[in-house]
Nucleic acid binder design. Structure first.
Lengths: 356, 356
DNA sequence: CTGAAAGCGCTTACAG
DNA sequence: CTGAAAGCGCTTACAG
């Protein structure tokens, strides 16, 4: 029906009141008589009045909007977690009727330019940053600008800003422990480039897990590759070509783990039988890989909710360092972790092949 | 360094000019001397001036923002396409420095309320709607409000609004043709509830494909279930329990197809050998299913870009009906389509099992 | 070519 | 308890 939204002016005229009065009535100011407050509310409902947010936000000096910088991704499968994170963020912001703005960048420098623009143009009250680098110019910039932000992940110098992270180091200790418990000792690590802080953390967890279990860290067993399924496959192929190949592999992400599975199958070996694999992320899709992927799971929507809540609290004035939250990942056993397999078992295994 | 963004006022003072003059200089008005225009631009750069967008947009009466209503999803794997769609949308909007606002709703009625709010509160210039229902109250509402929108997908009465869709009917004819070419005749359809227009279109394509190939449409071979991997698995189990089970199954989505694969494997049968399966969406992840999923692929990022371009054109004044775009899906053969398999072949196949 | 005026639709002290 | 005034930071006719 209606075309142009009704403004406060129209609503006020309709009521025979002045604009500021109607504004205060709607905003629940105490100095308005209950009678008129009711009358105003009723009229607003009838006419379908919705405050113009550009005007409102300009006036109150708060964009009431949070920006999410999409992590840049090659054609990676790493994206599923984004949808869930956005959902969680949206839920948190929705409680206060704030908006969620999503922003992409094509390159690192482009991303810095975007941050600069977003922060200065009054479009967002705060920013959510994903996947920080070990030395991340984005965090530096935001701190210089004294602009509210919260990091999904954290860097080494994480004392002075707000973050939500899953304890990747701990998770990889857990993975290694689990594999050692299954009898493995030649355990490899497939990782992504170490400028990503998470890649570094997880590698350290892997190394610590090895040491804790009295195993030596063999540099050949650490393979770094592009952060993708193809990268994981390439890295795993290198590992399997080793004179003494690993009997188990921990992967920095589910996506890379999928590549690892492909490499293992490509040699006629069976993941979870001949070579165990543990991923990281807990993507639903892992239920359907070949075979289903054992992984360190984590609640992405929860991450989004917490990040949203933390950021709003900071915008309200909280000290950022007050909001630092470390979550633990959970080992989610599916089918790619199994007891250590020796050449002698080979025959036994072949007869079980049908069960896949 | 700087904390508060510099305003036009500050910039003007700095230059000894008046605010409107500086504004016109920055916006490239012709009635400004080239000399001062240059001077103003340089100063704006130096001071890092960025126009306050709330102010600007309030003034020009255009929020320069597009809203995307996230499709509501149970814990489904259907989400990966969202990230790519958002990326495409962001690219299109970015060309004109428009923003992308993402909005979630928990229920259908909540979604209507959100639309109502978004359109009346001046936050968005237009809306992108995904996955329309056959009779979608959201489209009705937007048309009543005469608010610019564009639909990802389309309904039966699609003549009077803008949409971008992939031809699901055609795609399913293609799938069926392909399977018939492989010798199949008992071909089943695994679908999601038919209030979704896409589910309906794809079913019709399936039926047309059967008829075109001189096959009868057996109602038992049409199974509708919840739109999820579990739904696909349940539907497929029903099919496999039939006295005359199908030798091939086309699925309304990759997610449901993953469930179909699980059901088939669950009976010790091999997808692509004993029972062929074709999905729909072309998710990357299908490369890693067991076995890799044959599917009807489609370019999601392209969809996002086109939707963004169309919507901006409409907001600029184009007739919505001028923007209707039908894309074809491409058969992407991976490993789940194979020649029709009879009981007699059983033995032959078993000996090949290692190759998975 | 630049300035002075008005307006976009709100909110928030300040009077009375 | 309500109205009259000023302001948020822009843009856009309108003078000169």
């Amino acid at each position: 029906m209606s075309n142009k939204p009704v403004s406060l002016k129209v609503l006020a005229a309709h009521l025979g009141l002045t604009v500021p009065t109607v504004s205060r009535a709607l905003n629940g100011y105490a100095d308005i008589s209950p009678a008129t407050r009711e009358r105003v509310r009723r009229a607003a409902d009838e006419l379908g009045y919705r405050p113009n947010q550009n005007a409102r936000r300009l006036s109150i000096g708060n964009p009431e909007t949070v920006g999410y910088l999409m992590p840049r991704i090659g054609q990676s499968i790493a994206q599923p977690f984004v949808a869930q994170l956005l959902q969680g963020l949206g839920e948190a912001l929705g409680k206060r009727h704030w908006d969620l703005l999503v922003s992409h960048a094509e390159s690192a420098s482009d991303e810095l330019a975007q941050i600069e623009k977003l922060t200065r143009s009054g479009r967002v009250s705060g920013l959510v940053i994903s996947r920080p680098l070990r030395n991340d110019p984005r965090l530096q910039l935001l701190q210089d600008l004294k602009f509210p932000f919260v990091v999904h992940g954290r860097t080494g110098s994480s004392t002075d800003y707000a973050w939500y992270d899953v304890d990747g180091e701990d998770a990889f200790v857990t993975s290694v422990n689990h594999l050692v418990g299954l009898g493995h000792s030649r355990i490899a690590f497939v990782g992504s480039p170490l400028q990503f802080q998470f890649a570094q953390d997880r590698l350290i967890g892997y190394e610590r897990g090895m040491v804790v279990n009295g195993l030596t860290v063999d540099k050949d067993l650490i393979q770094i590759a592009e952060f993708s399924d193809d990268g994981g496959e390439a890295a795993t192929n290198i590992l399997l070509d080793l004179p003494q190949p690993p009997t188990a592999i921990v992967c920095v992400s589910d996506t890379m783990a999928l590549g690892a599975l492909a490499a293992i199958r490509g040699r006629g070996l069976r993941p979870g039988v001949h070579v165990s694999v543990i991923g990281y992320d807990g993507l639903q899709f892992g239920n359907h890989s070949n075979p289903p992927l054992t992984t360190m799971a984590q609640p992405q929507a929860h991450a989004g909710r917490r990040l949203g809540d933390m950021l709003m609290a900071i915008i309200d004035g909280d000290k950022p360092s007050k909001h630092q939250e470390l979550q633990r990942a959970q080992l989610l056993r599916r089918m790619t972790d199994g007891p250590m397999h020796t050449a002698a078992d080979q025959k036994l295994v072949s007869t079980r092949e049908e069960t896949t």
